[in-house]
Design a protein around this nucleic acid. Structure first.
Length: 795
DNA sequence: AGCACGCCGACT
DNA sequence: GTCGGCGTGCTC
């Protein structure tokens, strides 16, 4: 018997299966989808690999033996392996990279660097790999493997180790098992209505009956439960709860809401597609139209059919508010996957999914790979979000993966948004997607907010502050006087605190990257966000020696200071990269605002997503323009989406909301359509431009980025690449660039970019593969080339 | 990636 | 004559 194995070396030359012999002692243990250790190369260093096939061929060559199997149960299933094969054609990445992104990080980490026979492990490494709590410690990996280390060979061990790693998550839950004979003979005074009621109910339950104490307390009062326990009616059993189960604490279950006509129409259309091959659905619904309720009904239907469901949500809106809605409907069948979880927690969730315990997965982009079986529905909420495209290898788009998976499972795929991406909306027009619209608000009493656009130029020179026009200030004061809340959006991306000299204007920049260093007050250092450069905060200007070198706060910091000065009595919460760096800070800030511990929430993009604060009656956009002038053909689209989304935050409940947008471009179409909350109008206008400029959806795009330490070399190579591609592709294809990336240099590498725009190119894949081959040439050793199919960020 | 092989100039 | 630089090619 032999096995085909993909080795964990992400390189073109090793990106194919290698055959290994399955030794007697491992036969039966090795399955397709398992991870194994194999000796590789002349030195026989141990590498991790995935079994992608097992065959019974006649022994042709002498094969090496598989050294060890890491999983008793395969970590990848057939569907995932097939998925990786399909994706490889579109995504220019290595198979091993794809496979690794399909399993929880915990099963990947550590091995890359340390796997080598004879290599000595530091106590820390030994601890991380094998778990400090386990009785054995190994300084040498081969010794560890020989002794059949706990690592995922025996799963129980792993469990124990992880729990030990992270004690704070262990909780004991009380399980109560009914002792019927005690209950039947229990005397309860006739005056104790509630106790009698509880006894009645318990008597009617099917035996054997057990329940969580917390559940019972939800049903009856704490007093009644305490009484019953005291009378020894139950056998008490304490169970260690899985870490992730802590989600389910304190979430009361809720029932389904009644749907309006549009919603029920959407639900029935979508449900009819479950179990059939059907094109994806675009569910376009204005904010407040109840898209989530539609999702919940669809999932419910899928579950009733014995199927499962995946819900994708953008990372930033994966807030407790959001997940609670799913958990309260579907209880412990829900698994949550987001980046806030530790590797161990993600692993727990993954196991819940793999074992079939979880039937509904709510998660960010990478959750599209979860090993759910029998999927009935896949839902992608806020479909237009750029974060569904991974910006590093493998550069996949979750929507494309979802389409493939929906096909294999005959699942209904729903793309939902108030402001769909232009591409998606266009496909709905062409019939490639089925188009469902929700035009009414689910709560008919809630009114659309009134949106006012304020022209900054009218107040030039007469403003007291740079961020606030008198119109906006007045409105804020009015709302505060009425004890209502205000959300203020500072539309500015990734711009953070830096240090500048007042004398000569010198800005402290990274020596390796063309970007200013960011001030980190917590560590008292200046850090580069692109490389790991770090230095102490300067007290003297390195350029002119002056001492008047000052710290310049981020945009939000500045706006915060101004606002605090103008409205000293207002309680303001600031939310940006600086204040949310700490884990959990995001949630606690939002919670504080929700509890009305502050009057004004001032922040960047992150406040625009899916928050629902009923007491917010005013949303102010301080500067609508900053995202409008970016060198990206999607700049208008993004601005429109942001403005529409943030406007939806105003007045979601009974109180009517108001929105004020401050701008220098009040007549720009992205702003005027956003003012009217008119997505369809925006869509048609934008489509004309896209056609004229030959951009998606009229053209497909591929982005090629070249990086090299020598700027002259990249430029020359970029022109070589351009020439090569021109030779392979038809004259219809258009090329942009090479142009330097907006941050032209990071980690001492210069980056240049070429964009290909095309409609039909039969040889594109061949051409790009040829490009990759060419990259392998010795003369290009230092050249790094990345190919991005349908890039979402042109910068 | 990591290692060996092999070809070339420079050296005790 | 040999040491070591690096370009090339292979790893089941």
């Amino acid at each position: 018997m032999q096995a085909q194995i993909i080795i964990d070396i992400p390189l073109m030359q090793t990106d194919k299966p290698f055959s290994y012999h399955i030794p007697e002692r491992l036969s039966g243990l090795i399955q397709v989808g398992s991870r194994v250790h194999v000796p590789f190369g002349k030195a026989n260093r141990l590498l991790q690999g995935f079994v992608v096939g097992i065959s019974d061929e006649a022994e042709t060559d002498v094969l090496k033996d598989i050294r060890e199997v890491l999983d008793l149960e395969p970590v990848l299933n057939q569907e995932q392996l097939a998925l990786a094969d399909k994706m490889r054609h579109k995504i220019f990445s290595y198979k091993i990279t794809l496979l690794k992104s399909m399993i929880p990080n915990l099963l990947n980490s550590h091995y890359d660097k340390i796997l080598r026979p004879g290599k000595k492990l530091s106590p820390e490494e030994s601890e991380t790999i094998f778990g400090g709590a386990s009785e054995q410690r190994f300084s040498d990996l081969s010794e560890a493997v020989q002794k059949q280390l706990p690592y995922l060979i025996k799963e129980e061990k792993v469990e124990v180790d992880y729990l030990a790693q992270d004690k704070k998550h262990i909780k004991l839950i009380d399980y109560l098992t009914l002792k019927p004979e005690v209950l039947e003979t229990l005397d309860i005074s006739k005056r104790a209505k509630k106790r009698l009621e509880a006894k009645e109910w318990l008597l009617t339950q099917a035996r054997p009956f057990s329940i969580k104490a917390s559940e019972l307390r939800k049903r009856y009062s704490r007093e009644v439960v305490a009484f019953l326990i005291d009378k020894d009616v139950f056998q008490l059993q304490q169970v260690e709860m899985q870490r992730s189960s802590s989600y389910f604490e304190d979430i009361t279950s809720s029932s389904f809401l009644k749907l309006n006509r549009e919603q029920s129409h959407a639900v029935s259309e979508i449900c009819a597609a479950i179990g059939h091959q059907s094109p994806p659905f675009l569910l376009e619904g204005i904010t407040g139209s109840g898209k989530t309720e539609v999702y919940l009904h669809v999932i419910d239907q899928a579950l009733r059919m014995g199927k499962t469901a995946i819900v994708l949500v953008p990372e930033i809106s994966l807030t407790p508010q959001m997940t609670t809605r799913f958990i309260s409907r579907f209880g412990e069948q829900v698994a949550i996957m987001h980046s806030g979880l530790s590797d161990g927690e993600k692993f727990d969730e993954w196991r819940k999914i793999k074992s079939g315990q979880a039937k509904v997965v709510v998660g960010a982009r990478s959750a599209i790979f979860v090993p759910l079986e029998n999927i009935g529905a896949i839902i992608i909420d806020e479909e237009h979000e750029a974060s569904y495209k991974q910006e590093s290898n493998p550069r996949y788009h979750a929507r494309d993966v979802a389409i493939l998976r929906a096909e294999t499972h005959s699942a209904a795929l729903v793309l939902g948004s108030a402001t769909p991406s232009i591409e998606t909306r266009a496909r709905a027009s062409k019939g490639r997607y089925r188009f469902l619209q929700l035009k009414e608000r689910a709560n008919p009493h809630a009114q659309m907010p009134s949106v006012q656009v304020v022209d900054f130029r009218d107040y030039l020179g007469q403003q007291e502050s740079s961020n606030f026009t008198p119109v906006l200030l007045e409105k804020i004061q009015e709302k505060l006087a009425r004890k209502e809340q205000v959300v203020l959006l500072l539309n500015r991306r990734g711009y953070s605190s830096f240090v500048m000299c007042r004398e000569c204007g010198y800005v402290d920049e990274c020596p390796n990257c063309d970007i200013s260093l960011t001030l980190h007050m917590d560590t008292k250092t200046m850090n580069c966000h692109y490389c790991d450069f770090q230095k102490k905060i300067p007290h003297q200007c390195p350029s002119c020696g002056s001492e008047s070198i000052r710290y310049y706060g981020s945009g939000t910091q500045k706006a915060y200071d101004e606002l605090q000065e103008l409205l000293p009595e207002a309680r303001i919460l600031r939310m940006d990269v600086d204040t949310t760096r700490r884990k959990g800070a995001h949630e606690s800030l939002l919670k504080a605002f929700g509890n009305h511990e502050a009057d004004i929430l001032l922040g960047t993009q992150m406040i625009a997503k899916g928050l629902d604060f009923p007491n917010v009656t005013l949303v102010g956009v301080l500067n609508a323009d900053t995202s409008l002038n970016l060198p990206d053909f999607r700049a208008s689209e993004r601005t429109f989406q942001l403005l529409t989304q943030v406007s939806g935050r105003a007045g979601r409940a009974e109180k009517t909301g108001e929105v004020i947008i401050q701008t220098y471009n009040p007549n720009h179409y992205a702003i005027t359509f956003a003012q009217k909350q008119d997505f369809e109008g925006f869509y048609h206008y934008e489509m004309q431009l896209r056609q004229k400029m030959a951009y998606p959806p009229y053209y497909f795009t591929v982005g090629i980025t070249l990086s090299h330490e020598d700027e002259q070399v990249v430029i020359r190579k970029a022109y070589d690449v351009l020439k090569g591609l021109r030779g392979h592709l038809s004259s219809q294809a258009r090329f942009l660039g090479p142009t330097p990336k907006p941050i032209a240099r990071t980690r001492n590498q210069f980056h240049y970019q070429i964009i290909i725009k095309y409609r039909f190119e039969d040889h594109l894949e061949t051409a790009l593969n040829a490009l990759l081959e060419w990259t392998q040439n010795a003369e290009n050793r230092k050249l790094r080339v990345t190919i991005d199919n349908e890039p979402q960020n042109m910068m």
